[in-house]
């Protein structure tokens, strides 16, 4: 595998190892040469700041290996295909239609959805069970597509808090394992980033993008709002919601913001399809399984 990205990260991460005190005078000379810790962090930021699309996809692939490592996909090919159809159609309305968009439902009863750079999107089975129609799903997928389109996760990694982790992982990977170096380097930052979550403003922005992408795709624009109304009535300490509620603004705040952004503008698109029948057929198997 490998790419310019890993090279950047590994070279610069070597220096992080030095900062950690595992090198001698040569390392000190190197550090002086690149301008100490500040210079190092600046270089690391530049390394990720110039990520090209193929590298972004490679990174997303690596992050998704860890996300699907937490819970694998639901064994239901028709459901997986269905979610890919809806997702591909919604993503086609974005400014990055050429990305190889991939969607999956993971076998988790928790209610959540995740996006990784390059177009990898995971929705939990618990979320699928909570949604009522395809317009709601389009809104939820549109929100995740919004994170990818605006590179929210890439930017979060660049902000520095994750750089030490990425660097340490890359240094470890370069020192030891064979193959999958980037994946190994990404394990730490992935866990940290996806359990901490993005900035609230990124989430509000993704809601507005999800709204518009679902509307562009021809759906009832209130799908996302409707799904948030379902989330808003669930008790905040429900264990199935813990990670979602920790990593996102509360659903009522999101609804208030979304309501302000929607105003009456989207009334033009009322009476657009919700496709509840098609959605219910797609989730019939997982819902039946949950009842047995």
């Amino acid at each position: 595998m490998n790419s310019r990205l890993l090279l950047h990260v590994v070279v610069l991460a070597g220096a992080i190892g030095i900062v950690a005190g595992c090198a001698g005078p040569q390392g000190q000379a190197f550090m002086d040469n690149i301008g100490g810790v500040d210079g190092l962090m600046k270089n690391l930021k530049q390394a990720t700041g110039t990520i090209k699309e193929p590298e972004e996809i490679e990174m997303g692939h690596g992050i998704t290996e860890t996300l699907l490592g937490a819970r694998p996909m639901v064994d239901d090919a028709e459901l997986q295909r269905y979610v890919n159809f809806v997702g591909a159609w919604v993503a086609a309305q974005s400014e990055r239609p050429q990305l190889p968009w991939h969607f999956a439902v993971n076998d988790s009863d928790h209610v959540n959805a995740f996006a990784a750079p390059g177009g990898y999107i995971i929705v939990t089975k618990g979320m699928m069970n909570l949604l009522q129609n395809e317009a709601e799903l389009a809104g939820v997928l549109g929100h995740e597509i919004g994170h990818v389109v605006r590179k929210h996760h890439l930017n979060a990694i660049r902000k520095g808090a994750y750089m030490n982790l990425l660097g340490a992982g890359a240094a470890g990977a370069a020192a030891g394992s064979q193959g999958g170096e980037l994946v190994n380097a990404l394990v730490g930052p992935t866990k940290e980033l996806y359990s901490r979550g993005l900035d609230k403003d990124d989430e509000f922005e993704a809601d507005r993008i999800g709204l518009v992408l679902a509307t562009r795709a021809g759906y009832d624009p209130w799908g996302l709002a409707s799904s948030l109304q379902t989330l808003a009535k669930i008790k905040p300490d429900d264990k199935y919601m813990a990670l979602l509620f920790k990593t996102h603004p509360n659903p009522s705040d999101r609804l208030d913001r979304l309501g302000t952004a929607m105003g009456t503008t989207f009334d033009t698109y009322s009476n657009r399809p919700q496709n509840a029948d098609r959605f219910q057929r797609a989730v019939a198997k997982i819902r039946t399984a949950a009842l047995n």
Binding site: L67, R71, N106, S195, K239
Partner: peptide, 16 residues
């Protein structure tokens, strides 16, 4: 419960 809790995420191993 088939989880995707914070603990499940922290314990995850990459699944290529």
């Amino acid at each position: 419960v088939r989880g995707f809790s914070e603990e499940d995420l922290k314990a995850a191993k990459p699944n290529p």
